[in-house]
Computed example of a mutant assay.
Amino acid sequence: QQLNRLAQISILQALTSSPHALMAQLNTMARNQTVPEQLATAVSEVVGRMRTSAKLDGLGKLIEQLRHERPDAWRLVVFTSRLETQTTIQAYLEERGISVGIINGSSGPRNQITLQRFRRNPPGCHVIVSTEAGAEGINLQVANVLANYDLPWNPMIVEQRIGRVQRLASEHAKVSIFNVILQGTFEEYIVGRLMEKLQMASHAIGDVEALLEASGADEDDENAGTSFEERIRKLVLAALAGKDVKEAVRLEEQSIAEAKAELEREQENIDRLLGGMDGAEYIGPRAPNLPPPAHSMEPKEFTLAALCTLGARLSQQGNGLHLSEHNGGRE
């Protein structure tokens, strides 16, 4: 409670990302004297004794399911916010014989090679593990499965992750999205519940920012995503302090549902006024409705008159034919 807002969010998000991410976060903060060094040391000792984590096991089971159902026809992108978590995932999967591509803020020169392997048929690697910084400007639409290994508390970042894979030019009719969540923790009953509620509602509406604004997420902040992140932080801290937050979480879910319903009503009103676009296909600009042209001359009459104007001498030959003589030429 004594830490500032950003420090609180950093620790809590590292905690739900991976043990190694938490250890790295606390070691950095201990060097900066933000947290006691004894805390960082104690966490490091615990992490050092851990063989694996529940999240890694969950990701492993998902991959086994994909390999069983579609041995060669699956490509998975795993998103994480932490480099330490990325390294842990890579080591875990490679120990099990799964080839992994890595995209992060320092992998730029290797990204094209990684993507080429990912796009091959069959793929040279079935899994890419990426951070937000690495994926900026990268097209991952060849993937048909996305896993959020950790969930950012800012919904706009989650939408950006999905947008890297779920694009209009994707060859896949559907992209499966999985959130890897620690069961029985605040990540499940606060972060996971609210984020999944938002994802489903924004999929129906098509505009997560409008949904956040309609739900009141930007009342005290110009950035709706940052404001929603702050609402989650307060709920998590209250839960960790032993307070019952079930009703508060229910009210947040209700505000999302009400915002979705309000936006749908607004869209229906617009459709009634202007006409809906369901089933419509853009075929370019419409041609104007003009009256039929009024011709002063028939085509044959016009052609003969034009030849005379150009200086040709015409003589009728029968059967509707004419001989045109001009400058020594005959036609």
Rank of each mutant, 00 (worst) to 15 (best):
N121E: 05
N121D: 13
P122D: 10
P122S: 15
P122M: 08
P122I: 03
P123Y: 15
P123N: 13
P123S: 12
G124Q: 09
G124N: 10
G124P: 07
G124C: 06
G124T: 02
G124K: 04
G124L: 02
G124W: 01
C125Y: 04
C125Q: 10
C125M: 11
C125F: 02
C125A: 14
H126D: 09
H126C: 03
H126Q: 12
H126N: 11
H126F: 07
H126P: 12
V127P: 09
I128Q: 07
I128P: 13
I128F: 05
V129Y: 03
V129I: 11
V129R: 07
V129C: 11
V129E: 04
S130C: 09
S130R: 02
S130F: 00
T131F: 04
T131N: 12
T131I: 08
T131L: 11
T131R: 10
A133P: 10
A133K: 12
A133H: 12
G134P: 03
G134H: 01
G134C: 05
G134Q: 02
A135Q: 03
A135V: 00
A135L: 01
A135C: 13
E136Y: 04
E136M: 06
E136V: 07
E136H: 06
E136I: 13
G137S: 05
G137W: 06
G137N: 06
I138T: 07
I138C: 03
I138E: 01
I138N: 08
I138D: 03
I138K: 09
N139G: 13
L140N: 06
L140Y: 03
L140D: 08
L140M: 05
L140V: 14
L140E: 05
L140A: 14
Q141E: 14
Q141R: 07
Q141T: 07
Q141M: 10
Q141N: 14
Q141A: 07
V142H: 13
V142W: 11
V142L: 13
V142K: 10
V142Y: 07
V142S: 11
A143G: 14
A143Y: 03
A143P: 12
A143W: 04
A143N: 10
A143C: 06
A143H: 06
N144F: 04
N144Y: 14
V145T: 14
V145R: 01
V145W: 01
V145M: 04
V145K: 00
L146R: 00
L146M: 14
L146N: 00
L146Q: 00
A147P: 00
A147Y: 01
A147E: 02
N148Y: 13
N148M: 09
N148T: 01
N148E: 15
N148C: 14
Y149L: 15
Y149D: 04
D150R: 01
D150I: 02
D150E: 12
D150T: 04
L151S: 09
L151F: 13
L151P: 12
L151R: 05
P152T: 02
P152K: 08
P152Q: 07
P152H: 05
P152D: 09
W153T: 03
W153K: 15
W153E: 05
N154K: 11
N154W: 05
P155V: 04
P155Y: 11
P155F: 06
P155A: 06
P155R: 13
P155C: 12
P155M: 12
P155T: 08
M156T: 10
M156E: 08
M156K: 12
M156W: 05
